[in-house]
């Protein structure tokens, strides 16, 4: 059964890709089997991450960028991540409604994903779903997230090229863009460049980049996603970053994925460990310091 699904996935059948994504999204045994089976075939697609504050027009820009890629003959997969409600766990996935121009295009596969429990960040499955799209033969896979909390940094780790999108006049000015964002961007985009404050925002971003000598090479572009202005230049800039970086050795990415999965596992074990409560009480009573307690916990886990 799974074997035939994998074959169909590798042939690029959309129905098989959709089912495989659900299997991976739910962390099912079948999902793991699929990933193992397609692993040797991965690494062809380039993964471009889009992030930035809400209201920057990311989805519209992604839609326009997809259009540009299609013009250049590339097949495209899009993973659009929307935050889950912290209260109900449900989510409204509305990003693809800004990409309606690709609704009838078989060369574009869009999948919406709820961020799930992972507060403000990327669903752990997102990176593996990108792998499935890679396996299905997509030339470019786009990962789009709302830039809240941790997700900018995570997108940069997962993606080959990280595009950070901001808009003029969001908050008071560029200071509103969280610290750390400039460090992770390969390409910075000021979208909605038809707005009055766009030039000022662009100058501020450039000035801020110059304060951090390590990243003077970062391109700062202007786009107007709604009219398509600057989108071709964005595609060129992404290409240029890709060309300069080269293909990362597959091990780098896998090591990170394994490490993350292991870290999640260990954390779960730590939280479930019977020793944790005892050690915590000891620290509370002043008998132990936190570092010693932690070391004791790690030793105890190793003995399991």
């Amino acid at each position: 059964m799974t074997a035939s699904l994998v074959e169909r996935l590798l042939r690029g059948e959309p129905a098989a890709l959709a089912r495989a994504i659900t299997a991976v999204e739910t962390e099912s045994a079948r999902g793991r089997d699929i990933l193992r089976a397609v692993q040797p075939r991965l690494g062809r697609a380039r993964l471009v991450g889009f992030t930035g504050p809400p209201g920057a027009g990311k989805s519209t820009l992604v839609g326009a960028y997809v259009g540009e890629l299609r013009k250049r003959g590339k097949s495209v997969g899009v993973i659009a991540v929307d935050p889950s409600s912290p209260i109900s766990g449900g989510a409204i996935l509305g990003d693809r409604l800004r990409m309606t121009e690709h609704a009838g295009d078989p060369g574009v596969f869009i999948r919406s994903l709820a961020s799930r429990g992972h507060l403000g960040g990327l669903s752990p499955a997102a990176s593996r779903i990108a792998d499935l799209m890679d396996a299905a033969g997509k030339d470019v896979v786009i990962l789009e997230t709302v830039g809240a909390g941790q997700s900018e940094v995570e997108v940069a780790e997962v993606a080959d090229v990280a595009v950070v999108v901001c808009a003029p006049g969001l908050g008071d000015d560029v200071q509103a863009i969280k610290a750390g964002i400039l460090e992770i961007a390969d390409v910075l985009v000021v979208n909605k460049s038809d707005l009055p404050l766009a030039d000022r925002t662009r100058r501020q971003l450039k000035a801020m980049l110059q304060l951090r000598a390590a990243r003077v090479d970062v391109a700062v572009l202007s786009t107007t996603a709604t009219s398509g202005e600057g989108v071709a230049a964005l595609a060129d800039a992404v290409e240029a970053v890709w060309a300069a970086k080269g293909r990362p050795p597959p091990g780098t990415r896998l090591k990170r994925i394994i490490a993350e999965a292991a870290a999640r596992e260990i954390r779960a074990k730590i939280l479930a460990s019977p020793q944790l409560a005892a050690l915590s009480s000891a620290v509370e009573r002043g008998e132990l310091d936190v570092a010693t307690a932690a070391a004791a916990l790690v030793r105890a886990l190793g003995e399991d």
Binding site: I87, G90, L93, G94, A103
Partner: peptide, 17 residues
Amino acid sequence: YLRDAGMDVVYTGPWQQ
């Protein structure tokens, strides 16, 4: 309503073909 009941809702604009 559906989101508040814990479901994931893919929402689109009008006039879908």
